[in-house]
Each structure stands twice: as C-alpha cells, then as structure tokens.
C-alpha cells in the first residue's frame, strides 16, 4: 500500500458501513453471470507493517492486476502465534480459490492448510514453507539450508575461517529464524572447526535493540571478528554499533537485509556482505504460481512455468525457484530500490 492511498483506505471502511454501499462495490462476490468468474487469490504474509512483506505485497498486487484476479491481503498485526491459522480458517469460510502463505510456523499452520485443501482450495507457500503435504507448490527464494550455508560460508570467508563471531536474530521463538540458526550451526560444526559462535541475541525485530545488543557484544567479546544479523532490522542496527565503536572494517558484518535500509553502511564499508533475494519478485511469483495452480496450467511434475514478466521459471520437484539470492555490494546496491 502506498502512503498516498492511506487516506483513501481509511475512508473506504467508513463508506462500507453505509448499508448497501459495501454490496454495490463488491466485485469479489458478484455472481459470475456476465463474465467468467474471477479467481480470488488470498495472500498471507508472516506479519504486517513490515518492510519486507509490504514489498512482497507490492509485487503480488502487480501480478494480481496483470492476471485480473481478485486479490485479498491480510496478516497478523501482533505476535499472537495463532493468528495465521485463524486467518486461513476464516478464508476457508469466505470462499477463496487459492491461498498463498508465508508460514510463520511450519507445522503449526499445516492443519489449517490441510483443511483448506479438503474444501477444494489450492494452497501455495512462499518465503517459508509448511509441510509438503499441506500445499501444492512452494515458491522458493532460498532453502533454509541455502540461507544457512550462504551466511556461514560468507562469515567464514570474511573471518579467514577462524575466530569468534556472534549472531543477532529477531526473537528466540521465531520458527524460521530457528531453522536458519540450526543450519548455520550445522555448517559451522561440519566445516569450520576454528570458528566459534560465542553468543546469540534476540533484537525483538527492532533496529535500536539490535544496536544495543551489538554494542554489548562488541565490548564483551573483544576478539569478535564478525556479527551475523539474520533479521532485516538487525543489519543496520549492528552496523551502527560497529561504526560507533570505531571498529568499521575490523569487525565484519554479514546479514540478510534490505538494500534501502543498508545502502549507506555498505557504501562506507561497515557492512561487508548483504544477502537477499528480490523481494518484490517473490510476491509477484507467488501470485503467478497461485494463479497457474488454480487454472490447472501448473501441475505436479512440471519442470518450468511461465511467470509473466519473469518469463520462464524453473521448478525443482514442488519448488518454484525464484533464482539465486543477490549479494549486494558497493557497486551494485544502487540498482536496487526495495
């Protein structure tokens, strides 16, 4: 949602309260008499009011417009772990055709998604997967393993494969962060015996908290060679702490983050390695996949699919591949606006 639309959106529900008005403006439930029935795709991010997922939403809306489908969007506005399940169960009774979901909770949400499938609703996942039996396709920007290995290998390279490093994550309970941490630790144990993960701190998904944690880590572990930030607000937070401690370049930073939030630090050389996929394309591809699944053009066993402006996209098993993540550097970061 653009900020310019903000006031219009606030006004919309006010009109919706006038009896009848909501009905007449209701394209979604219009009976499919005159034209063929429009497909309804419901799009569920892990959380709302989050730059990562609002960028996803932008791409998703663009795809929905191209495909002329009705696009529903809702997501948790707080940290209640039951919220995603409730939204899916509500969408089942609402009567949508496809649900595209970024799962906060791999196993927790599978029951609700299976219920949807039993009612004939197609399910695709994006960003983070559920159990494979609860969806038809997963729009895969990177596997847990891929992310874990990229971060750990990257950190090892920055440190010369030896020394201490610390990690900052979103919250201790966030499911996908924990999956990544597991992969990072597994890779560490398998390949880098001379490196040591000294501490992991949560930053509650807040930049300022990440900055404070990083400040503490830097002075509590004077031999620290690298900070790995695995949630997007933690990357600029850690960078600011390193900069204020006067350790730019001496303590390396690697993380998963948005170019728009890290541009200055990458250019100054505070942050060495920033990894992320094209988030807008991720949302776009999720809706394209959802559409293709609902139309029957995408079936199990297919090796490629056509995805609008992304052209031909590869499929591995039931994973639709977005392509390799970007590594943003001084030289290319200005090309990315998200």
């Amino acid at each position: 949602m653009k900020r310019s639309q903000f006031l219009a959106l606030l006004a919309a529900p006010a009109f919706a309260f006038l009896p009848g008005c909501g009905k007449s403006g209701d394209a979604a439930s219009a009976p499919g008499g005159s034209v063929e029935k429009r497909l309804t795709i419901a799009f569920l991010p892990k959380s709302k009011g989050n730059r990562y997922f609002s960028t996803c939403e932008k791409g998703a809306r663009a795809a929905a417009e191209e495909l002329k489908v009705d696009f529903l969007f809702d997501g948790p506005t707080n940290t209640d772990p039951a919220k995603q399940n409730e939204i899916v169960e509500n969408w089942i009774t609402l009567g949508v055709d496809v649900i595209a979901v970024a799962c906060e909770n791999r196993e927790g949400i599978s029951g609700a998604l299976k219920k949807a499938q039993a009612k004939g609703i197609k399910v695709v996942t994006f960003d983070s997967d559920t159990t494979p039996d609860a969806r038809s396709f997963f729009v895969n920007e990177a596997t847990d393993e891929g992310i874990g290995h990229a971060l750990m290998d990257g950190a090892a390279q920055l440190c010369g494969e030896e020394g201490e490093f610390a990690l900052i994550c979103a919250t201790l309970t966030a499911a996908n962060q924990n999956q990544w941490r597991k992969q990072i630790e597994a890779r560490l144990a398998a390949k880098y015996p001379k490196m040591k993960l000294v501490d992991s701190k949560p930053c509650d998904d807040q930049k300022d908290k990440a900055q404070q944690e990083a400040t503490n880590l830097l002075s509590a572990y004077p031999n620290l060679k690298c900070i790995m930030a695995i949630c997007s607000p933690a990357v600029p937070g850690a960078a600011e702490a390193v900069k204020q401690a006067g350790k730019s370049g001496a303590v390396k930073i690697i993380g998963l983050g948005l170019p728009s939030e890290n541009r200055a630090y990458v250019k100054e050389g505070v942050t060495q390695s920033l990894i992320l996929w094209n988030v807008e394309d991720l949302g776009y591809l999720a809706v394209q996949t959802a559409y293709a699944v609902a139309n029957g053009t995408l079936k199990a066993g297919d090796k490629t699919m056509k995805a609008g402006r992304l052209n031909e996209v590869e499929i591995d098993g039931t994973s639709v591949l977005l392509g390799k993540p970007f590594v943003f550097t001084k030289d290319n970061i200005d090309q990315f606006q998200f």
């Binding site: 949602m1 900020r3 903000f6 959106l9 606030l10 709302k48 009011g49 989050n50 730059r51 990562y52 997922f53 609002s54 506005t77 930049k207 600029p236 728009s260 939030e261 541009r263 200055a264």
Partner: peptide, 14 residues
Amino acid sequence: AELLRLFQQGKFIN
C-alpha cells in the same frame, strides 16, 4: 500503533 502501521508500513526513514 495501528494508524502508524497503516501509514508507514514498517518503512525505515533515512
């Protein structure tokens, strides 16, 4: 909190 979320969408201000 909700108005702020709707308005800013979590976007950092540089």
